[in-house]
């Protein structure tokens, strides 16, 4: 079981790299988990973009207010 999960994650990571999504392995695992929960993939993609954007914004904020 563990081995299979490992294999699957490898395949998915490879895909992710090939498509240059910029997601880390940890993040990919979370995405797969969310998908397994039945989340709408379109929405999930939107969520990820949003989070990224917010993260950038927060980073920028943090940089401005040291």
């Amino acid at each position: 079981m563990e081995h299979q999960v490992q294999q699957a994650m490898e395949v998915i990571t490879e895909m992710s790299d090939m498509l240059n999504t910029g997601l880390t392995r940890e993040q990919l695992a979370l995405v797969v988990d969310l998908c397994e929960k039945g989340v709408n993939p379109e929405a999930l993609a939107a969520v990820i973009t949003e989070i990224r954007r917010e993260a950038e914004a927060l980073k920028a904020e943090a940089a401005h207010t040291p």
Partner: peptide, 25 residues
């Protein structure tokens, strides 16, 4: 192991080419 294969692939496809594009902050 992965039951919702399509969802996963779809998320990846949707996020394709976003890894190194700096999003407008």
């Amino acid at each position: 192991v992965v039951t919702r294969k399509w969802s996963v692939v779809h998320v990846l496809a949707a996020l394709a080419e976003t890894g190194d594009v700096p999003l407008p902050a």
